[in-house]
Simulated assay, not measured.
Amino acid sequence: MDSLNPDHPPLTVSPAPPRVWKFWGTAVWGVVIFAAMFVGQIGAIVYLVWVGGDPVDLASMQHVGREPASLALSVTMGLPATLAAVWLAIRIKKASFVDYLALYWPSWKQLLLGAVGLILVVVAWETMSRSLGREATPGFMTDLLKSGRDKGGAVMLLFAFSVAAPMSEEVLARGFLYRGWSSSFLRVPGAILLSSLVWTVVHLQYDLYFLAEVFTIGVWFGYMRYRANSLWLTIVLHALNNLTAVVLTMWLGS
């Protein structure tokens, strides 16, 4: 029996390496996924313009896009487009969608740690904003949320900013980008920083001060994604952060 012969040890089968897009593959697919998100959002506005009977041009799209309900629908429609593009990228690699994105539920201890850290980061920035005499929320967001409340679009905005946007952004940043870049030469620290930078760029409607805050929160989300190996954790934290901001802004605006 060869298996008992020291001169002929039993064969061992090495596990197959995980099928993951590396640095450039992740970067290229990241652009494709972001483009899909953008197309989904713009497509919603184009549809509303067409249904309204207006000419489908830039002026009409800008006019419709300023309405809170239209903007909420636009943000929401970015989610299925994002998920479809991410699913395609992972499908090509013949990998598990759940495993690739680490769609595992975190423990209560991990959720508590993530929430406490997020609160500390937000409070630090809020304190700095007050000491500098700055608004805690960008003015255009305050106006949008007030308008949505007054026009009956509060629920749609709440869903868009507290559910759809966090899921879209986390699947892209802490899901797909982090997974690929952490398996490349960047490793975990580089993946956290670069994915946080990309997530910050998605929020270019803010000024540099708020962008710095977004980047800091992104780094914390990235660390928790690594520590807990759970994308659901960062989705929940992101959703709680946005939900708190939306509710408080609407309440303060009243």
Rank of each mutant, 00 (worst) to 15 (best):
residue 208 L to E: 09
residue 214 V to Y: 00
residue 182 S to Q: 14
residue 227 R to I: 07
residue 113 L to Y: 10
residue 32 V to H: 11
residue 125 W to V: 08
residue 118 L to Y: 04
residue 171 V to W: 02
residue 154 A to P: 00
residue 250 M to A: 12
residue 121 V to A: 04
residue 18 P to R: 15
residue 251 W to L: 07
residue 1 M to W: 10
residue 96 S to K: 04
residue 75 V to N: 01
residue 27 A to N: 05
residue 19 R to S: 15
residue 14 S to F: 14
residue 183 S to L: 13
residue 14 S to K: 15
residue 185 F to S: 01
residue 11 L to N: 13
residue 229 N to T: 10
residue 149 R to V: 13
residue 79 L to Q: 07
residue 139 G to K: 11
residue 186 L to S: 05
residue 195 S to C: 09
residue 130 R to G: 14
residue 173 A to H: 01
residue 11 L to P: 07
residue 221 F to I: 11
residue 119 I to E: 06
residue 123 V to N: 12
residue 65 G to V: 07
residue 231 L to V: 03
residue 41 Q to C: 02
residue 193 L to K: 08
residue 59 A to K: 09
residue 199 W to E: 08
residue 102 A to D: 14
residue 40 G to F: 01
residue 29 W to K: 13
residue 218 G to V: 06
residue 89 A to F: 05
residue 60 S to K: 00
residue 235 I to Y: 01
residue 228 A to K: 00
residue 213 E to N: 00
residue 148 G to T: 05
residue 241 N to E: 03
residue 246 V to I: 11
residue 168 S to N: 09
residue 2 D to H: 15
residue 137 T to A: 13
residue 234 T to Q: 09
residue 23 F to D: 11
residue 149 R to H: 13
residue 240 L to Y: 00
residue 101 L to G: 08
residue 142 T to A: 09
residue 181 W to N: 02
residue 166 P to A: 07
residue 22 K to Q: 13
residue 8 H to N: 11
residue 113 L to C: 07
residue 201 V to E: 11
residue 213 E to G: 00
residue 70 S to D: 09
residue 44 A to Q: 08
residue 110 Q to T: 04
residue 149 R to Y: 15
residue 119 I to L: 13
residue 180 G to I: 00
residue 82 T to P: 12
residue 189 P to Y: 05
residue 200 T to F: 04
residue 202 V to T: 11
residue 172 L to N: 03
residue 95 A to Q: 10
residue 67 E to Y: 05
residue 31 V to E: 01
residue 160 A to C: 08
residue 195 S to G: 10
residue 147 S to D: 07
residue 201 V to D: 09
residue 211 L to P: 01
residue 204 L to R: 14
residue 111 L to H: 06
residue 187 R to P: 02
residue 88 L to D: 10
residue 63 H to Y: 09
residue 44 A to I: 09
residue 41 Q to E: 05
residue 154 A to W: 04
residue 163 V to C: 11
residue 1 M to P: 11
residue 37 M to S: 06
residue 153 G to V: 02
residue 87 W to E: 02
residue 200 T to M: 09
residue 237 L to N: 10
residue 131 S to R: 14
residue 30 G to M: 12
residue 42 I to G: 03
residue 121 V to M: 06
residue 181 W to S: 01
residue 117 G to E: 08
residue 6 P to T: 11
residue 23 F to L: 14
residue 195 S to L: 06
residue 218 G to T: 10
residue 27 A to G: 04
residue 246 V to F: 06
residue 164 A to C: 11
residue 73 L to M: 15
residue 64 V to H: 01
residue 182 S to V: 05
residue 153 G to R: 02
residue 91 R to W: 08
residue 143 D to S: 15
residue 48 L to C: 12
residue 124 A to V: 15
residue 120 L to Y: 08
residue 163 V to G: 06
residue 89 A to H: 03
residue 82 T to L: 07
residue 50 W to Q: 12
residue 206 Y to Q: 04
residue 215 F to Y: 14
residue 194 L to R: 10
residue 247 V to Q: 00
residue 53 G to M: 08
residue 95 A to V: 05
residue 77 M to K: 00
residue 186 L to G: 02
residue 214 V to P: 00
residue 168 S to V: 11
residue 240 L to V: 01
residue 52 G to H: 05
residue 216 T to R: 14
residue 166 P to K: 01
residue 11 L to R: 13
residue 161 F to D: 09
residue 126 E to M: 00
residue 171 V to C: 04
residue 216 T to Y: 15
residue 7 D to E: 15
residue 49 V to D: 00
residue 94 K to T: 10
residue 250 M to T: 08
residue 78 G to N: 03
residue 227 R to S: 08
